[in-house]
Structure formats: structure tokens, C-alpha cells
Nucleic acid binder design. Structure first.
Length: 291
DNA sequence: ATCTGTCCCTGGACGC
DNA sequence: TGCGTCCAGGGACAGA
């Protein structure tokens, strides 16, 4: 699922294809939970505006426009942002996939899950936003307007410090795993990298946050940054739906230590990786390396 | 203020 | 083969 590294890879690869372009036409599906700004408003308001920057806040992508409005995009669980012309089996429904001969890769064609398409005036490849489960979000922020989702974000996980995590953990009775997933504490951390960081820091995900030492917090933040930077380097994690903007898979899923490795041996000690549920989220850890 | 549980959505896995 | 059931999970929200 798209977390900070996947969103950052998307941003880096999309920016050169978006910044400086002027939106010409907007195509959407019908109004739904996905559209925080109604499709009709996007279609009316966006054409003619030029994208001047593409930046990231936590897991949110923000396209800055030349009238100081901003288009906020969130990939949710299954969101995919990619360029016209991309090919990937992950971009196709299972029926479309099975009708393909193995040697043939069809270029992506807009389907019922493709909720937003931006076309540009200079004929450059259009941008597609596809999201099967519709947990993603699109919101147009007019100049000077903000949104609670953004206002609530804590410090970006890549620039956070152990001391910030330590301060935020005081008097908190929740599990450390839940604290790491709290976007108002560290923005950008999701289920995969929380589990990976807890493993590398040797911290049991169930440990009450208030029982973390300053040293634990330093180790957790260092581990988070290590796995996230490495994931960005390898193009993110393609475990279920994530693809980069050109349709290519990431590589970090092949390097992960514990996430979705239930019952497989720990790569450090050989113990069997355990899966439990914390706050309705599946959580993976090594019972022997993490205390 | 903090915490927990519920809900949104759809496709894939699994059992019969 | 085909159907029903369960599960995945980011984040907003309600209620304790």
C-alpha cells in the first residue's frame, strides 16, 4: 500500500511530466466518496490552470497551481497514479489480465476504476488516477484554503528526530505500533514501514508507547528513515497494487524483514515470524528479536 | 484528551 | 464451476 516511500517515488517520477503543464481537460467517474471535490467542479475549475510544483506532505501529494490553488491527492489503499501509455498487469482487472496472452502487454485503457484523468494542453501524456477500493481522495484547495487532514499532520517521518517521537510517546498508553501509525505524530508512516522499523529497532509492537526509552525512540526513527530511504531507492514496495508512474514495480518488497512474512523464519535468528492484530491492523514481528 | 470500534470499498482467497 | 463468506487496510468519525 502506498506509504511515504511510494508517494515520494510517485512524486519524483511524476513531477517532470506534470510541472509546467497546463491542464486542458478533466475526465472523471461519477461522484463518490473518493471525490472530496465534486467531479463537476474539477471539470469546470481545473482546465487552464498550470501546475507549478508537485510536493508531498506525509502520504499526500499536492500539485501547486499557478493561481495558488492546490490539488490534493491521496492514494489510500489501492490508489495508482501513472502516465498514459503505461503497461502493467497491476493496472488491469483480473478478467482483462486473464484474456491477455502472456507475451502481450496491452497499453492501459481507462476502466471503471479510473476516477480521474488529467489531459494537458501540449499533448503530453495524460495522468491517470485509478483506485479500485476508492479509499483514495481528490480535493481542490482554492487559494488560501487548507484542510484539516493536512493541518493535523505531524513532522514528516524522513525529517523527524528520536526526541520528537520520545516527547509524543509520553503518557500514551497505546501500543507503539499505533503511535507510529498516527499521522499527527510522524507523517507518512504506514503498516509496512512501521513493522519493518519496529523489527530493526528490536521493539515489540505491542509495547506501550509510554514505556519506550529515549534510546528506543532514537532507534525507531533511525530504522524508519533507513527503511524508507532504501525503499525510495528501490522504487517502493509493490506488494498488492502499487506501481510507479510508468507502470513499473518497486523493489523493496523483496528486501522486507517481517511485513507479510507470517510463519517464515526471522532472517536474524530463525524464529517464526508472528502475525497479530493491533488496532485493526495486521502486525508482523519476531518474538525473539523484538522485546 | 485519549482510546477503541465501526465504517467506507472491492477483489482475491478459500471452503463447500 | 459457482456461490457465499471473510479479509485487507488509511483515515474519519462516534461514542466511551
Amino acid at each position: 500500500m502506498p506509504e511515504l516511500p511510494e508517494v515520494e517515488v510517485t512524486r519524483r517520477r511524476l513531477a517532470p511530466r506534470m510541472v509546467g503543464r497546463t491542464v486542458q481537460r478533466v475526465v472523471t467517474t461519477t461522484d463518490s466518496y473518493f471525490f472530496l471535490t465534486k467531479p463537476a467542479v474539477l471539470k469546470r475549475q481545473l482546465p487552464g490552470r498550470q501546475i507549478t510544483d508537485l510536493f508531498r506532505l506525509g502520504k499526500y501529494l499536492l500539485a501547486e497551481l499557478n493561481d495558488s490553488s492546490r490539488l490534493m491527492l491521496h492514494l489510500g489503499m489501492t490508489g495508482q497514479l501513472f502516465l498514459a501509455g503505461s503497461t502493467s498487469p497491476r493496472l488491469l482487472s483480473s478478467t482483462a489480465r486473464s484474456s491477455l496472452s502472456p507475451t502481450r502487454q496491452l497499453k492501459f485503457k481507462r476502466d471503471t476504476h479510473t476516477h480521474l484523468m488529467l489531459e494537458f494542453s501540449d499533448g503530453d501524456p495524460a495522468i491517470f488516477f485509478r483506485d479500485v477500493r476508492k479509499f483514495g481522495k481528490v480535493l481542490l484547495l482554492e487559494p488560501g484554503r487548507s484542510d484539516r487532514r493536512l493541518d493535523r499532520l505531524g513532522v514528516d517521518a524522513l525529517s523527524s528526530t528520536g526526541d520528537q517521537l520520545f516527547q509524543a510517546s509520553r503518557k500514551r498508553s497505546i501500543a507503539t505500533k499505533s503511535l507510529l501509525l498516527d499521522q499527527s505524530v510522524l507523517a507518512g508512516v504506514g503498516n509496512i514501514y512501521a513493522d519493518e522499523a519496529l523489527y530493526l529497532a528490536g521493539v515489540r509492537p505491542t509495547r506501550r508507547a509510554a514505556r519506550l526509552s529515549r534510546r528506543d525512540c532514537d532507534a525507531l526513527v533511525a530504522a524508519l528513515q533507513r527503511v524508507m530511504l532504501r525503499s525510495i531507492e528501490t522504487g517502493g514496495s509493490s506488494i498488492s497494487d502499487y506501481v510507479a508512474p510508468d507502470g513499473s514495480d518497486g523493489g523493496y518488497q523483496d528486501e522486507r524483514w517481517v511485513y507479510a512474512r507470517t510463519k517464515m523464519p526471522c532472517q536474524k535468528c530463525g524464529a517464526s515470524i508472528r502475525r497479530i492484530v493491533i488496532g485493526q491492523r495486521s502486525t508482523h514481528y519476531c518474538p525473539s528479536c523484538q522485546r
